[in-house]
Amino acid sequence: MEKNHIVFENLTNEIAVLRLNRPDFLNSFSHEMITDWYKSLVEFKENDNLKVLILTGTGKAFSAGGDIKALSNGEGFIGDPTEDLWSDAVKRKASLWENIQKIPLLLEEIDKPVIACLNGDAIGAGLDMALMCDLRFCADHARLGEGYIHLGLVPGDGGGYFLPKIVGESKALELLWTGERLNAEKALEIGLVDYVYEKDEVFEKAQQFAKVLCSKPQNAIRMIKRLVKNHNKVSLRNHLDMVSSHMAVVTDTHEYMALLEQMKNKRK
């Protein structure tokens, strides 16, 4: 189990955890990691018993992002190590599309809550992967930053898409242009993370929040996520059309009927 670059397991019958598991390499990405990461997300999406996913790292870092050693060897950050990606720009583009870029595209399809628990530093693509999650719980000693500029690179996994949605365009440009690393307090101040806790309690806090989400009506949880994630992709008219459709569905479920009856009884 310890040799796997991804550890995917159930914390409870309803909460799953996905651990990045290359602690000796600060959980930098590998081809095996990305492949198993994608497979684990598919499993989480398709398992009706699982309601919430927590993404975290093993060891002292959340993730250092791309593997610089692999890049210097001509393998690319996360491509197949048997391929010489430096020899062909088309291959490098295809490597991103066929590997790491599959993860944000799949996450976009998952209506269940996904929580990032930053147990340590999250740099470059490591930070970007946390930005793809719905909420971010952060250890107080962690540092966060976009390091692409130091190698003359652009964020290849969607960081340039997610970061401005969270911190705004001007702050996103500043972070991407400078590669500045922020401490947890500053990251909380600008909205890059949602909660900061001591390193020994951050995972427990994330799990507690996951349990709260599990206790809520699941049809509503997932439809609310879909509405919020699409709020800036559709017009108000189309958004309200989606809302009316979702409302028609949730008010026709046994879950809604039971909760309505409970509320009525409380008011008697």
Rank of each mutant, 00 (worst) to 15 (best):
I54R: 00
L55M: 13
G57L: 08
G59M: 08
A61H: 12
A61E: 15
F62G: 03
G65W: 01
G66E: 01
I68K: 11
I68A: 13
K69V: 07
A70S: 10
L71K: 02
S72N: 13
F77T: 10
I78P: 02
I78T: 14
I78A: 09
G79I: 08
G79A: 01
D80G: 00
D80V: 05
P81L: 00
T82K: 14
D84A: 09
D84S: 14
W86S: 10
S87Q: 12
D88K: 10
D88I: 11
V90D: 12
K93F: 12
K93N: 13
S95M: 14
L96A: 14
E98R: 09
N99C: 08
Q101E: 10
Q101K: 14
I103P: 04
I103N: 13
P104Q: 03
L105E: 13
L107S: 07
I110C: 03
I110H: 05
I110M: 07
D111M: 09
D111Y: 01
P113Q: 04
P113G: 04
V114H: 03
I115D: 07
C117T: 11
C117P: 04
L118P: 01
L118H: 02
L118N: 02
G120P: 06
G120F: 08
D121G: 14
A122N: 06
I123D: 03
G124I: 07
G126V: 13
M129F: 11
M129V: 04
A130Q: 09
M132W: 07
R136V: 14
F137W: 03
A142D: 08
E146G: 00
G147E: 03
I149G: 03
H150G: 01
L151H: 12
G152L: 11
V154L: 13
G156I: 06
G156M: 05
D157Y: 03
D157G: 14
G158L: 02
G158T: 00
G159C: 13
G160S: 15
G160F: 04
F162T: 10
F162C: 08
F162A: 11
P164H: 09
K165D: 05
K165W: 02
K165H: 07
V167D: 00
V167Y: 05
G168M: 03
G168N: 06
E169A: 15
E169H: 11
S170A: 13
K171I: 13
E174Y: 15
E174Q: 12
L175P: 01
L176D: 06
L176P: 00
W177M: 12
E180K: 14
E180R: 15
L182E: 06
L182Y: 01
N183T: 10
K186G: 00
K186R: 13
A187E: 03
L188F: 13
I190F: 08
G191Y: 11
L192F: 09
D194G: 11
Y195T: 04
Y195E: 12
Y195S: 08
Y197N: 05
E198L: 04
K199E: 14
K199L: 05
K199I: 10
